[in-house]
Computed example of a mutant assay.
Amino acid sequence: MKVSWVTDESRVPSTVDYGTTPGKYDSSATGEHTSYHYFFYSSSKIHHVTIGPLHPATTYYYRCGGSGPEFNFRTPPASFPIEFAVAGDLGQTGWTTTTLEHINATDYDVLLLPGDLSYADTQQPLWDSFGRLVEPYASRRPWMVTQGNHEQETFPFIYPDGFKSYNSRWPMPYQQSGSVSNLYYSFDVVGTHVIMLGSYADFSTDSAQYKWLANDLYKIDRSRTPWVVVIIHAPWYNSNMAHQGEGES
């Protein structure tokens, strides 16, 4: 499990203490930290720490940076059944709150978020407020995300590639699936292979994403993973006029 958090204090270490008993941390892991600039905005210190190996269907109690409040999360089970929650285009409105409360009322195992997280759209403080908004939920279960159009935040000549905030704040385990980009990856949980595609990364037949996807699909063993789930924000080929004329989709 990767634990990510943001601190204003630069001297906070990128460490997570954890254990299976409240207030008792018999394991610790150290990770990395980053920060970024976007025009006149400078982010605080963004920590990313991977902890484990962890036992399935187990509640772990943890604290970040050597002090502070205690959080807890439950790992997914080792066998069926498993329950996924799927919600995209979250944003930061009253509807966001009721949606998250509705999801939280279930006993789901993994949340899949197919893009459009904070709706910051270059207004970087909205990334910080989104983090505070989802913390009570994202700290309790694994959240696996892919990007949407509102994560692009491109600007000609200055930020032509986009996704600076998204990649800094929401790194996914793309390397483990052989991907070369945080914008698309896959992972296994119980008997399910989940593919998170990138609507806004090149998907032409000679692109890295296309070749990665072909190889990823080829390696699936349906006897071990009978379920294959594909998540994408805007379909590569679609008649949705709201997404026509975009750089990729």
Rank of each mutant, 00 (worst) to 15 (best):
V230R: 07
S27W: 06
L213Y: 09
Q123I: 13
I46K: 03
M241C: 00
T98C: 04
T225M: 09
T59A: 02
S177D: 05
L90Y: 03
A78M: 02
S177E: 05
E70K: 12
I195S: 10
H243L: 11
S207E: 06
D116Q: 05
T96Q: 08
V49M: 08
Y166G: 10
P77G: 08
S139Y: 02
Q209N: 09
F130T: 11
I220V: 15
D116H: 04
D17H: 10
I232L: 12
P235K: 03
G247W: 09
T192V: 15
P13R: 04
T192H: 09
T20D: 06
F71T: 03
H48W: 11
T154H: 07
H48I: 10
H150C: 07
S129L: 10
G148Q: 07
Q209I: 06
S27E: 11
H233F: 03
P77V: 04
D128N: 14
H47G: 05
P173W: 06
S10N: 07
G52C: 07
N240V: 08
H233L: 03
D216N: 14
S14K: 07
P173T: 08
M172S: 12
F187G: 09
H243K: 07
D109A: 08
E135Q: 14
H48E: 12
V86H: 06
I158H: 02
S35E: 12
A85L: 02
G247K: 13
G88A: 05
Y108P: 01
A105W: 02
S44Q: 11
Q147L: 12
G23E: 10
